[in-house]
Amino acid sequence: MTLAKSRNMDEFLKNRASVAGLIVILMLITAAILADFIAPYDTDKIALKEKLKSPSWEHPMGTDQLGRDVLSRMIYGTRTTFELSILVVALTSTFGVFIGIIAGYFRGVIDEILMRLIDVLLAFPSIILALVIIGALGPGMINTIVAISLVGWLFYARVARATTLSIREKEYIEGARAMGCSDGYICLRYVLPNCLPPIIVLMTLNLGSVILSIAALGYLGLGAQPPTPEWGSMLNEGREYLRDCPWLCVFPGLMIMLAVLAFNFIGDGLRDAIDPRQMVIK
């Protein structure tokens, strides 16, 4: 660990909200990974006798209209949500950073075309665009990923481009060119690592909003399809019973809020912790 990195870490750990967020996320990830071992019931086990039970020792979060254990579905729902959102963020950030670096590094016509394309895509409200895409492709998890990713990469591309623009003016880039390094090598070894700090912050914040989008699509019945447990669709299914059985909505709702909040706290903490000299986006 270098001096700077450990100092960044210290700075991050000083921020209590971020540390709390990190703990929450780590717990959720553990739950998602170990779902098979810690979930008390099978998520698909329908037991109509047990339906709509309020929280008890046996079912800490109650049961739903089909008698399935809500806690177990929440735990597996964590897995669904995290799988989807991490996949989306991985896809969009990789693609966006790739496009952004290319536009920022080569400038000129490529840059103009890519940036105008991004401007056009950004002119659509993202959720409506996602609805249109799912409307065309049909509901389902894969299509959810496609719909959210289609707009998601834009922000990465913009941030990566802006960062690249300032990095390419640095003398170490010129030095690398003078050394005879190829453009691809320079982008990979010189531009990319120096682009990463703002991208990492953006990824953390973005995870929160992707979780929200997935939940929103799930709530509209366009995301994960039953019987797959997913927070948004659980919220949707519980809606009918809101008056009599509020736990069906309260727990997924709280969970979504908790996860989004946690990611936002981590993102804020990271942004403050990462050396401001290295933060190029202002």
């Binding site: 003398e171 030095g175 005879g180």
Partner: peptide, 22 residues
């Protein structure tokens, strides 16, 4: 040109930004 580059080098004004910070 890339093959020739090692033979022609440059030293810049600002040493701090001449080195890859990471």
């Amino acid at each position: 040109l890339r093959k020739l580059r090692p033979q022609m080098q440059i030293i810049f004004q600002d040493p701090e930004s001449s080195l890859h910070p990471r």
